[in-house]
Design a protein around this nucleic acid. Structure first.
Length: 265
DNA sequence: TAGTAACGACGCCTTACCTCA
DNA sequence: CGTGAGGTAAGGCGTCGTTAC
């Protein structure tokens, strides 16, 4: 099913906004229409029996916003009377305004715990959670959707920060390598450099592109060969004419695994 | 067996509401 | 007291997978 494609979402993100949000929920006057959590709409069902009775039809009418019968329940212009809870104190403007229904601390905590276990819900779990929390299944569904969106957003921010640091490190590494190339070129211009150097390997310099050829299939020690013009041209021709699948002009510097975050380590 | 409509679930985007500085 | 920013519940729409026909 579709839930499987989200199974690898990282849940280890810092979710500080939730605690902040939950603290706000403790305030008794967060909503004038709802004098308490118990009386606020969609918070608590009129009774467990009522909730049980209504959940059956709600599940059919609410759980899918796209089904032909479900879109009725969520219209912002329509009062939410299916739980019957919004009639006990805010009959003044319930018909016209869409209420902001804040979940209680306990509700959020339970949802959070459930989300840590599995970030998607099957219909059975959704119904059970809704019943446990005194919410409509649609509310539980929406909470999980928004929660997944928040997780994804957080992950995107983390990824963005990571890529930013990668970019910075690569820029720094590039700067360092450019400097190194300049130094090597300067050394190359002075003949004494080669005179006093006992090269540990044999390298073949390509006269045209000034790179060092690395034999692809030999493990024998290399010896630096300074070729004459004709000889070098012939070898260069041979090297360049050969059908090459892998670039033979590898960097002369021994390659090592590059860590973008720690390029010098 | 292939095609198709219905349905459910989800993601993405947006809106409306709420709180706080 | 008014206001803008940020957070969040919820609506709308498109997409995809499943199922029945």
């Amino acid at each position: 099913m579709m839930s499987s494609k989200h199974d690898n979402l990282s849940l280890s993100l810092g979710l500080s906004f939730d605690s902040h949000y939950l603290q706000l929920n403790l305030r008794p006057s967060w909503n004038d229409h709802a004098s308490s959590d118990r009386t606020s709409e969609n918070r608590m069902p009129p009774s467990p029996v009522d909730c049980e009775e209504e959940e059956e039809e709600e599940e059919a009418a609410v759980s899918s916003p796209n089904s032909t019968v479900s879109t009725v329940s969520g219209k912002r212009s329509e009062p939410e009377t299916n739980n019957g809870e919004d009639l006990d104190g805010d009959e003044e403007d319930a018909e016209t305004s869409r209420k902001k229904l804040r979940l209680t601390k306990d509700q959020s905590a339970v949802l959070e715990d459930s989300f840590k276990e599995h970030n998607t819900l099957n219909p059975k779990q959704k119904l059970a959670l809704a019943k446990q929390l005194g919410l409509r299944p649609r509310q539980v569904e929406v909470w999980f959707q928004n929660r997944r969106a928040r997780t994804k957003l957080k992950q995107t921010e983390v990824d963005c920060e990571f890529l930013k640091r990668c970019c910075e490190n690569l820029t720094e590494e590039n700067r360092r390598l450019q400097k190194e190339v300049q130094e090597l070129r300067a050394l190359k211009l002075s003949p004494q450099f080669y005179m006093h150097m006992a090269p540990p390997t044999t390298l073949t310099m390509c006269p045209s592109c000034e790179r060092v050829a690395v034999p692809s299939s030999t493990s024998a020690p290399l010896n630096v060969t300074r070729m004459g013009p004709a000889q070098a041209q012939a070898q260069s021709k041979a090297l360049h004419a050969r059908p090459i699948h892998v670039n033979p002009w590898a960097p002369a510097i021994p390659a090592r695994p590059f860590n973008a975050l720690h390029p010098r380590s």
